[in-house]
Nucleic acid binder design. Sequence first.
DNA 1: GACCAGGCACATC
DNA 2: GATGTGCATGGT
Length: 226
Amino acid sequence: MNIVTKIYSRLYHSFGPQHWWPGESVQEIIIGAILTQNTNWQNVEKAILNLKKGRLLSLERISRASLDMIAELIRPSGYYNVKAKRLKAVSEYFAQRCRCDFTSLEPLPLETLRHELLAVYGVGLETADSILLYALNRPVFVVDAYTRRIGHWHGLFKDNLDYDSIRVLFESSLPDSIPLFNEYHALLVRLGKEFCRPKPRCDSCPLNFREYFHPQRGTFFKKNHK
DNA sequence: GACCAGGCACATC
DNA sequence: GATGTGCATGGT
């Protein structure tokens, strides 16, 4: 069993299924993917509730709404002015591309869709992959700050390894399974929230950071996983 | 009051 | 192509 699979196994047995993504619809997941950029999910929930109350939890409606209106509703999620522009750009993309009929995107190759998403203002690598995996059910491994931090701490890769190399490392180490990629990312975030803010908290961490992190030196040492 | 959170675009070197 | 900076709220 490779280390990537072993980490997943240990996390799943410690935490159980995480039931991601917390969204009631595909559109809500896409909106949440923008709103959660560099922000707590708690703040995102407030913004989503505001959008729902304002009858703007809809890509079609966001694409036609004013930036000021959007910004005011999503204020709790932070960066509300830039995120208003990003939400509008993503909404316009899906409205124009498929009239928000996501099933019509199914014939598109993954790479084509990913390329198109990355061309949309406000959609970077992580946001594109979050949308692909959680909203559009495509087999992409989402790499976020926690994935990078945890992977680095456990000697999977150097701190400065680029996004796509990390993504390919996980994808090539695992069976090509959408539910698995979904659950793994959610579990890494769960682990990150509880044990990696921003330094390891060793006690009771299921991956046992004590084995890999040297607090006095502030450095890490590798230990073979068996 | 400091620090952090499920990033991204843009400017500058 | 690497590095720095602005964007901003809310919880601990």
